[in-house]
Design a protein around this nucleic acid. Structure first.
Lengths: 112, 112
DNA sequence: TGTTTAGTTAGCCACATGGATAACTATCTT
DNA sequence: AAGATAGTTATCCATGTGGCTAACTAAACA
């Protein structure tokens, strides 16, 4: 589960790869079409696709000589949930400012 | 905006750093307390804190000799929104299976 | 004042990452 | 069969990342 989020967040921390995701939410596309808007060599681009596929964010099928790539939505949702969970806990702390003040206070008199 | 998500997602793609976040949603804490559960040297751990701070996920104040670190919630929310937006678009495509079939179909007869 | 404590800075290292080119396979198209 | 198209594989390179130790500064304590 830990490893899962590692590779997921790692995958979407790159602008090229996020752009691919942003394209794929609208529907599947062949490699060459995905590659077109990016000003990098095809092999470099293929590496990005492999990162996405390794992270489980994307899958692909090759028919004839073209490989069609499509999004796998579940991972997106899971990551969103991790963020949501953290936010919820954070929002639950209505005493945030108090907590900070308290923490700083604790520093002044570590002996209690 | 692009760069922003880069550093944010990069920051939370590491398990040590996610653990720090998971701790900080419960309230601020000094460096040494954050470091304690992690089996790595302090300087290595400090690098992680710097990554989090550079990504704007965290801020810190030093009082006396102890530095207290606290979470900055806004970035969490923004990242969550990016994911949410993608999911929404994806979910909007009720014709997903049709789209895939169509994409594969297009491969069979590229000439139209 | 001397000693701990909390954090910081500097420098080193191995490995991962994102880019490139060259050369190749496989599948259409003509 | 020849040529174009779509992708793949291999190899290389610079830079970034995550870890380490050693040595340091600046508070608090005793």
């Amino acid at each position: 589960m830990d490893n899962y989020l590692d590779s997921f967040f790692g995958a979407i921390s790159d602008p090229t790869r996020r752009a691919v995701i942003e394209r794929l939410v609208h529907g599947p596309a062949p490699v060459s079409e995905l590659h077109a808007p990016h000003d990098i060599a095809l092999p470099s681009f293929l590496k990005h696709l492999k990162v996405l596929e390794a992270a489980g964010l994307v899958r692909s099928i090759k028919v004839g000589r073209v490989r069609t790539v499509h999004l796998e939505a579940a991972p997106l949702a899971k990551a969103e949930h991790w963020l949501e969970r953290q936010r919820r806990i954070w929002e639950g702390r209505t005493d945030r400012l108090a907590a900070l003040a308290e923490a700083l206070e604790r520093q002044d008199k570590p002996k209690g």
